[in-house]
Design a binder for these strands. Structure first.
Ligand SMILES: [Mn+2]
Ligand SMILES: [Mn+2]
Ligand SMILES: [Zn+2]
Ligand SMILES: [Zn+2]
Lengths: 130, 130
DNA sequence: TATTAAATAATAATTGTTATTATTTAAACC
DNA sequence: GGTTTAAATAATAACAATTATTATTTAATA
């Protein structure tokens, strides 16, 4: 799914590669630190700019956890569980819910849908045991 | 639905009153400015503390839009449409979706559910016309 | 090759939020 | 009722994430 209208700079390629390898939902800082291993001179502003850019182009997804942005390259429809104690975020899949969400989304009046996010907020197992 | 185990200080009452009157989803700043009309000497820290406190107690709901906290006293199950251009947030109701979301939420393993948020991101009518 | 626009790096500025501390208020106890 | 104690508040400092600015570099275009 390579878009023709996008300029694949070194920085963007490294960011996409990093997100492809990463298991989870890294913050901007995570991406910056990771990409820096290969592009030692990359600026954090470039990471911010390109994460936003790539998200706008639909190549990656942004998910906000407790006020901070996280990213992923997994574009398959899925949901998230987010621990309100430790901030842990995990994927959760329910095809039925994805389907209904999309269906509802497409029928909202006076609104051009871009995406529909379902977040389950609660306390993870580990935090519960404490 | 007045909780007995909560101390209803002037500040808390004013915050709750403000949220009850307000049509929409005010930010902390909005609440601060609003409540200040009556309690001119209230501190912004108190607004922060009490909004968090009241949300934890379940008397109000917090909803995060583009990384900033917003609040509402509408506790009925509902969803939100959020404009990615201007940030406008509006309520949207689908009983079917609320029901399925709750059902799915209750069956997530190793996770103590607190709430399930559905956010529709897109472009509102006004922003679309520009 | 010269011109132009886009992208990047470095860093300053801003914003939303949290932490700290002194003061005030109100409940609990005698 | 007056005293003790804890909770809540006000004021403000500190912090972290993000955005804005500007000079420089890179790449596309003519
Ligand atoms: Mn995910
Ligand atoms: Mn609402
Ligand atoms: Zn946790
Ligand atoms: Zn809009």
């Amino acid at each position: 799914m390579k878009h023709a209208d996008i300029k694949y700079t070194n920085q963007r390629v490294e960011i996409l590669d990093f997100l492809g390898d990463f298991q989870g939902h890294p913050t901007v800082e995570d991406v910056y630190e990771g990409v820096r291993q290969k592009l030692t001179r990359i600026s954090k502003a470039t990471v911010y700019n390109n994460l936003k850019f790539l998200a706008e182009k639909g190549l990656i997804k942004e998910v906000n956890v407790k006020g901070v942005s996280r990213f992923e390259s997994n574009l398959m429809p899925h949901h998230h569980t987010i621990c309100i104690k430790c901030g842990e975020i995990k994927d959760y899949e329910s095809e039925q819910l994805s389907d209904l969400t999309m269906e509802v989304a497409e029928n909202i009046d006076d609104f051009t849908i871009r995406s529909a996010d379902v977040n389950f907020l609660g306390v993870c197992k580990k935090c519960m045991e404490e």
